[in-house]
């Protein structure tokens, strides 16, 4: 019989391997010299040749740039609309049609992506026939489609942040003579800023790795990065995709580690200051 401590360690190793072994092997193979993805060329590895090949591949760089632009615009639009929706749901009381609005804003969360994509495509085609806009499919149509589902996530995040904070802060500002618009910009907005930032990042990530909806609403001239990777892999996995994916993993990991460290430092400083205030008394 295994001891308790050893069982725990084994469980941890197995669990982590299950999650991260695939990613680790992908990163290792991105330094492989061989053309064959699954054969390790021990003589000439590791090498950075797939990374340099990537940098000279205009097709992939274009797709990456398009993806970044779409994700940034999507995230920004989603944050503006999602904040307004979250604010209305959390602060405007039981107005007529509130339940309908709440249901409709969160419906895309559970809607199958295939259906969202297909309905979007049909709408864009019909619109193009009727009023001549959107003229072809590409950046604009992908962005609109992404906003429709990213919006829901931002709304939920903002709404829960608003529900968690004291209404009397806004009332106090009104009481001190601030008009409602002023109250929003100097009190509410700064306080929900963390939620807005995490909503933005969430929307950016969702838009960045969406394949299904983009597939429906993208035209022949516009391919996002996930679409390019997907189509390349269908023809057989090539090592430069490994390199590309490794870079993406590295960037994401770096962002997560930095933000975690930063948040922890803020939290620790705050706790320390609160302790000092309590100790000082009075």
């Amino acid at each position: 019989m295994m001891s308790r401590g050893r069982f725990r360690k084994t469980a941890l190793v197995v669990g982590l391997s299950f999650l991260y072994l695939p990613i680790l092997s992908m990163i290792v193979f991105s330094f492989n010299n061989s053309r064959l993805v699954t054969v390790w060329d021990a003589a000439h590895s590791p090498t950075l040749k797939w990374y340099s090949a990537l940098l000279s591949n205009g097709h992939i760089l274009d797709a990456a740039w398009l993806s970044i632009r779409i994700a940034a615009v999507t995230a920004t639009l989603s944050v503006v609309l999602g904040t307004v929706a979250g604010l209305v749901l959390a602060r405007f009381g039981p107005f007529r049609g509130r339940a309908l609005l709440a249901g409709l804003t969160t419906a895309p969360l559970v809607m199958p992506e295939v259906i969202t994509g297909l309905s979007m495509l049909l709408l864009f085609v019909a619109l193009e026939h009727a009023i001549g806009w959107p003229d072809g499919r590409g950046f604009v149509t992908i962005t609109i489609a992404h906003v429709t589902f990213c919006l829901s996530y931002v709304t939920v995040v903002v709404q829960s942040r608003l529900a968690g904070f004291d209404d009397s802060l806004e009332e106090a500002a009104l009481d001190l003579g601030a008009r409602p618009a002023r109250v929003f910009f100097s009190i509410t907005l700064p306080l929900i800023l963390p939620a807005i930032i995490s909503g933005w990042l969430l929307a950016f990530t969702l838009s960045w790795d969406d394949v299904v909806i983009s597939q429906f609403v993208a035209g022949p001239s516009a391919s996002t990065l996930p679409m390019v990777i997907f189509s390349k892999v269908r023809l057989g996995v090539s090592p430069d995709v490994n390199a590309l994916a490794s870079i993406m993993v590295a960037v994401v990991a770096l962002c997560v580690v930095c933000s975690t460290l930063w948040m922890r430092r803020l939290e620790r400083r705050r706790q320390l200051e609160e302790q000092m205030a309590r100790a000082a008394g009075g």
């Binding site: 009397s168 802060l169 009332e171 500002a173 009104l174 009481d175 001190l176 003579g177 601030a178 008009r179």
Partner: peptide, 20 residues
């Protein structure tokens, strides 16, 4: 007359100090 135009100020039970 809305709250922001009344000649009245209030001290809230939770104090409602702006944390930022």
């Amino acid at each position: 007359i809305p709250p922001y135009e009344r000649p009245v100020n209030m001290m809230f039970q939770s104090y409602a100090l702006f944390p930022h």
